[in-house]
Structures are given as structure tokens and as C-alpha cells.
Amino acid sequence: MDRLYLMTVFVAVAEKESFAGAARQLGMSPPAVTRAIATLEARLAVKLLDRTTRYVRVTEVGQGYLQDARRIIIAADEADHAVVGGNAEPRGHLVVTAPVLFGRMYVMPGIIDYLRAHPGTDVSALFLDRVVNMMEEGVDVGIRIGELGDSSYRALRVGQVRRVVCASPAYLDQFGIPTVPEELTGHTLVVASSMSARADWRFQCQGKALTLQVKPRLVVSSNDAAIEAALRGIGLTRVMSYQIAPMLASGELKIVLSEFETPPVPIHIIHREGRHASAKIRCFIDLMAARLRADSSLA
């Protein structure tokens, strides 16, 4: 059997921790998967997988081979994509993830443009306010806000956002504009996504970090709700700048304490494929990168 084929089967079994799961992923029969693994182990004269009727686990020696096999498969895929070239028409299913509000406001318009431009594609959008394990959940492209902790992904920086404190003009007219973070303790505060009656708001003062423990009068479960409360003049809230970009442009909300903001947070487009990514992924990344970089609210 072809060595690259055997490696591909082994990687699938290792990642799925299941012969049946690998068979479904590869479109093979379970016996064919079993034969491929047996052939590979016989060729290498080592045991790559421990398996019982209840589980499949990669052995210690198999872990090293798994990493090498992944690199070889990626290199082979990149070589294939390089031969196909950059003019291939995007086709197939694309899975995209992003934070909920960012996805609705910035990613969804890009997805619509992408689908209109490439009729041979379809898209699943996972807008979730949690870090998605792209490999386990079958995600092709992710938009992440924040520093990246996993260097295994290919990342393209496309913008940045700020953490800002804001309120309605009516609230500020009635209760005054805070000039230093400590003055927030005398204001009505709205906090999103906290189960506690207290929250930490971080600032930067003369180059030094400042953490202010605030006691909100209103705690809500979503940023949408916190923004709505601020729009209705109940108090100040702290959100990402992109989340209130339309309200800032219309004058419905105003930012305060801007000179005490922490450093901007980067936005990246990430994916797991190499520099010769498939046409469906490459075209989507190019489209989204151009859109996000052109948006002044993300500069």
C-alpha cells in the first residue's frame, strides 16, 4: 500500500480515537482501515496504537510518528495545491467561527459576499463566545479577538479593537463625565457576563496597570444587553469598541476615560492549512482580510 495513504489512515484513527470514526471520515470500510493500520505497523515493526473494544490510544512511539506524519501530509497537500495554482474555483463546504457580535456585525456580510461570488460553495457559521477547538469541531477558518496562544495555526492580523467605557450622552449630562477610573465607584455601572456582584475593570495609568474592582448595579448575561442598558441611560458599561461602533458613529453612545485604556487587542484570521490552502479557504480569507482591514472601526 502507498505510504502516504497509510499515514493518512493512521492520522485519522489517531485523531478520531476510533477505527469506525476514521472510516466514516475517509469514506472507507472499517475492515479496510484495520488492514491499513496493520500494514503500517508491520512495515515499521512497531506498535502505533493500543486498542481494546472500548478505546483506541496512540502509543508513546506512535505520538512521535503522528507528528511527523501530519507534517508530511501537510507538505504533500501544499505541493498538490501549488500545482493546481491560484486560479482554482472555490468549491465545497466551509466552516467559519467568530465571536457572536463580531460574527453578526462583520463576518456575516463577508460570508454573504463570498457565497454570491462562489456558487459552488456553502458555509456553516459558528458564532460563539468561546474559543473553539478548530480541529475537534471541524472548523476551517476562525476569526479570533485577542492574543493567540496556539502557534500551530496560520494567522493573519487584520485589525485591532479597544476595551472602552461608554455611556449615553443623557447619562453623562445628568451624572457627569468621570475623569479618572477611581471616579467610577460613584457611578451606576453595567457589567456583562458576570455571575458576581463585583467585577474587575482594567486600565493603564502612566504606563502602569491599574485594576479597579467595581460593584455593578446591573449584571447581564450578554454584551448586547449591556449595550442596550447603556443606550437607555442607566449607566456606564465596558465593552469592545467594535461592539458599539454604530452607536458611536450616530452619537448614541460616547467613550469616556480613553486616555486610561489598556493596549488594543489584535484581530486575527486563523486556519490550519499551509500557505497553499485550498481555494475555498484561500478565497474566503482574502475576502475577509480585505473587508476587515478596510473598516475604520477596526484600525
Rank of each mutant, 00 (worst) to 15 (best):
V46H: 06
T188N: 13
T59F: 02
V190K: 09
E60H: 10
E136M: 11
G235Q: 12
V219Y: 06
Y114E: 08
L4G: 00
Y153N: 09
G142N: 08
L231I: 12
I281W: 04
I234C: 13
E41D: 04
S124K: 10
A36S: 12
A38M: 06
G146Q: 09
A36I: 00
V131P: 00
I73L: 15
R57L: 13
Q67P: 00
A226P: 03
F19T: 09
A279E: 05
A75T: 10
A79E: 09
R116K: 13
R91S: 13
G159E: 05
S241H: 09
K208A: 14
G64I: 03
L48T: 03
R232A: 13
S278N: 08
Y242E: 07
R291M: 14
D140S: 01
L210D: 04
R238E: 12
L172I: 01
R54E: 12
S18V: 01
A36K: 03
S296C: 08
V9A: 02
F19M: 13
S250R: 11
P263Y: 11
T121G: 04
R217Y: 07
T8V: 01
R70I: 02
V256G: 05
E259Q: 14
K47Q: 14
V58Q: 04
T262S: 13
A299T: 11
G186M: 06
I227R: 07
F284L: 10
T121P: 06
L115A: 07
A36L: 04
Y55L: 04
E259L: 06
D140N: 13
R35N: 13
L248N: 02
I281D: 03
R71V: 01
T237S: 12
P263G: 11
R291K: 14
D286F: 02
R232M: 14
I267G: 07
G176H: 08
A279C: 08
R157V: 01
I72C: 08
L236P: 04
I234H: 13
S152A: 10
Q174C: 07
P246R: 07
M105G: 03
V33F: 05
I37T: 04
V100R: 14
A279M: 09
R157Y: 00
E136D: 13
V191C: 10
A14G: 06
D113F: 00
R162Y: 10
L189P: 00
D50K: 09
V100W: 01
S258F: 06
L156C: 07
K47T: 14
V265I: 15
